[in-house]
């Protein structure tokens, strides 16, 4: 064996073991798509919210807490409803309240016909495509899934709270039971099974509807085309995928 031969054979051997190792690692990692009919790359989830239909009954807030085991005490919500009271013509200074996140409904507070504008705004994680909360996570415990949902890996979350600060929409909280962060998962366990989210299932007026932007037959495309829609805080350029129609300028 001359030197040239040795180098060639040795090089091939190294290359082969290298690729075998890569292949073996993939085998060890296992096939992630356990649901046979669900392909991660075939979906891109979003939500359509029609503010003009929200009656502030709080069914979504209650359903969300039941479905996701969210702690019942006030101040911990994956989704909540806000009531806006905008004095005549003054969209700079709306009065906003959300008693217990709307869990018990909204006791009547404002007199009728005082010239003000009043409406409800359901809120939840905006499932941003370029999410600030994901960018600040030091351990990769929060991430954008390939099907467009921002999720939390509870096993790797340190509870450092960076993401709670980073979210421009205030959609995250630290679960006092585990010390880890929690947020809306767009009912990921339901949509992977072909069900809609708990909040959409519970909405009596269809004010909130789950949509799959990669499904050409999904009604969300009609909603986005035929209605005047907006996302919250567009100036943050977060790639938010919760689309509101009828959104008033006073909503922050």
């Amino acid at each position: 064996m001359d030197r040239r031969d040795f180098l060639l054979k040795g090089g091939k051997l190294i290359w082969l073991t290298g690729s075998a190792m890569v292949a073996w690692e993939a085998v060890l990692a296992g096939e992630p798509e356990t649901a046979p009919n669900y392909k991660l790359t075939d979906h891109w989830w979003a939500m359509a919210i029609d503010i003009g239909l929200c009656i502030g009954c709080g069914s979504c807030v209650r359903a969300c807490k039941e479905e996701n085991g969210v702690i019942k005490e006030p101040f911990f919500f994956r989704t909540w409803v806000e009531r806006y009271h905008v004095p005549h013509g003054d969209i700079e200074r709306p009065e906003v309240d959300s008693p217990n996140g709307g869990y018990d409904g909204f006791p009547e507070k404002y007199p009728p016909q005082d010239g003000s504008k009043n409406f409800f705004v359901p809120k939840l994680c905006n499932q941003c495509a370029h999410s600030p909360c994901v960018q600040v996570c030091p351990v990769g415990a929060t991430f954008e899934s390939p099907d467009g949902v921002v999720l939390v890996d509870k096993e790797y979350c340190l509870g450092c709270r960076y993401c709670v600060q980073a979210c421009p929409y205030g959609c995250r909280y630290i679960d006092p039971r585990s010390g880890t962060v929690d947020k809306c998962s767009l009912c990921y366990h339901r949509i992977r099974r072909g069900l809609t989210t708990a909040c959409c299932e519970a909405c009596p007026t269809g004010a909130r509807r789950l949509g799959d932007l990669k499904d050409p037959n999904d009604p969300i495309h009609e909603f986005l085309r035929d209605r005047r829609v907006q996302v919250l805080k567009p100036q943050m350029a977060t790639g938010a995928k919760v689309y509101y129609c009828d959104l008033d300028g006073s909503v922050r």
Binding site: A29, G30, P32, G140, T142, F143, E144, P146, L151, E155
Partner: peptide
């Protein structure tokens, strides 16, 4: 799939 634990999905 990206900088996270894939089996978390």
């Amino acid at each position: 799939f990206g900088p996270f634990r894939a089996s978390a999905l």
